[in-house]
Design a protein around this nucleic acid. Sequence first.
DNA 1: CTTTATTTATATTGATCGTTACAAAATTCA
DNA 2: TGAATTTTGTAACGATCAATATAAATAAAG
Lengths: 207, 207
Amino acid sequence: MARKSSETGPARRGRPRAYDTEAALKRATETFWKTGYSGTSLDSIATATGMNPPSLYAAFGNKHALYLEALARYWEISLAATREALAQDRPLDESLMLAFEAALSIYFSGKGSARGCFVIGTAVAESVDDPAIRRSVAAGLRMIDADFEARFRTAHERGELKPDADPASLAVLASATMHAIAIRARAGVRRAELREIARKAVSVICG
Amino acid sequence: MARKSSETGPARRGRPRAYDTEAALKRATETFWKTGYSGTSLDSIATATGMNPPSLYAAFGNKHALYLEALARYWEISLAATREALAQDRPLDESLMLAFEAALSIYFSGKGSARGCFVIGTAVAESVDDPAIRRSVAAGLRMIDADFEARFRTAHERGELKPDADPASLAVLASATMHAIAIRARAGVRRAELREIARKAVSVICG
DNA sequence: CTTTATTTATATTGATCGTTACAAAATTCA
DNA sequence: TGAATTTTGTAACGATCAATATAAATAAAG
């Protein structure tokens, strides 16, 4: 409802837009990523996107809707990265490390200091008071768990795990490891150290 | 500097205080816990504590200093709870479950919906832009790791672990599990389910 | 060229932000 | 009792908050 259609139809009528919606969402996401939802003003988003407040509202509705869109988009990208890493035809330990490396690439993708995970770093704080954000967080976490569990199940069938290993239990630890890395990245821990943490976790998980 | 001395000396001169500093800090912590640092106004803290703004400033300095004090106090209580749980003379798996149960008791200590961990839920969001908060988070996490590692080292010496088990690696997974529980509690996951997650993690960690 | 449609830029809205000035209130000391 | 000291309650400060009203600007359609 807020978002205007962007299909290149028979030529639009009025003054052309000066912004690219995709690019603006990306810039807005980066701003939220750094200072959180409550800590980010619409003014700073306007500055980051180069858009005027009216254009922001025309494009995204309001601050809350804009954040939800940023959150949804982050989940898409983040889950796709994890899924793609786990889909590679590699031994289990390499597969897990690929997933953690993919996560680290996202957590350290900013220009300044590490921002960690967008969800852990900004959405979790709002989750208590904001039902929509809470639902998004819960749903995304379930999907991460499911992706890891699927990978462990495959590994189990391939005999990469001990027969008594439980894919669901290992999935819990794998996503816990990912969250731990996300938290520590935002707390200023260096990437090499986080990689080491991932390595240690993988070595335990894979037996 | 901000905090006035509260030692019951030779009787104070002026109008007596209408507030108890300890109780006020507790109420302020609960408010921050629910709506985060940026999302909490000093007005709401004044309401929660029953204090006037000038009294708040006289007692704690300003919003930032008040939050840092709340954070430091939370770390104390939280770390003490973990340490005490791990200090119990129990088998390793029971010891870990005690620590996780202690954490759950804190994460679900609020009156309304679960608030999760104060650090994960509120401090992590501010960590990128706020050096003081970031340092507190990083230091606290290191202490948790150290406590778990010490427990695993003891278990290793007692022969509760396989000889090739690495206490540091297991500690990473234990605190990762704790963080995972903290995050999910704030995302609305029920306590019983979190207990189950902890149980699964313990079963993997302990072999 | 005029009309219609859409976006931009600016300015502003009332509300709320963190913080403080100020005076009344309440206590101890002389 | 009166002076000194500290806290309380209220009111207000300028700044900033999310959100909009308004009008100029820019395009296609008639």
